[in-house]
Amino acid sequence: MTLAPSALDRYIDSKSPVHALDARVKLLLTLACILALGLLPPGAWAGIATIATILWWAVLRARIGLGLVMRRAFVALPFALVALTLVFSRPGVPLLRLPLGPLTLTATDAGLIAFASVLVKSWLSVQAALLLTATTHFTDVLHALRALRLPAVLVAILSFAYRYLFVLVDEAQRMLRARECRSAELPGQRPGGSIVWRATVVGQMVGTLFLRSYERSERIYVAMLSRGYSGELRALHHRPLSRREQGLLFVGGGILAAIVFLTYVAGGGPR
């Protein structure tokens, strides 16, 4: 069992206009899309629906299963439990009263709209991020981050982390499997060992993993040194964005800005 970055990973090498798009453009448009969703006021359904349509159109252009993206985007939904409080905390027309001991919870229409908006916006934002991940190699994302002025050291650390992530996760999973093999457990019977003892075992596993990782990083450094590493990571040169890509960036950003702008002008921010 190895770590699969996501169920969408198998789409990463397929061919489509979205896949072929420069990572910088995709990263910026993804961020702009999430930002536009964040800026829309609660209950701005027209604006949200427009962004959703654009997003889903892009997903279909990328030839990724729309249903799969939608299902995968539910990962963030457990967090919605926290947002449930919005239903009861916004002033508005009362819809439902729940007597709960000494205090009464009052669900309001404004609260319900705020809650639903947060859910839909969060769901769509995850879809936008999924589309980026599913159509862009992570190394390209890193190059894009570098082009967007992220410090070179951070990009270097991130690329090292990404490279060894899967190695160390495999290592961790081997350790977990070894522990499973050592720990016999009868169904229906209380497993042995106190919680403190179990935590100590895990703590020692973490400590072991740390030592192995540390020693691995030393080996990596020596190996790189002997291959001519001088403290500088050489990346492929960046070509400037083509006229077409710049145009796409401006059109995409412009459409999103227009949606946000029109929502505020037309609705005055429906509340």
């Binding site: 190695v167 996760v169 977990l176 990782s213």
Partner: peptide
Amino acid sequence: ERQIPLMGVMAAFIFAGQMLNFP
């Protein structure tokens, strides 16, 4: 120069370490 591989591998270590759990 020595720190960069170390930091990267340490980030991967923390990531993997978060998978180690106990019931």
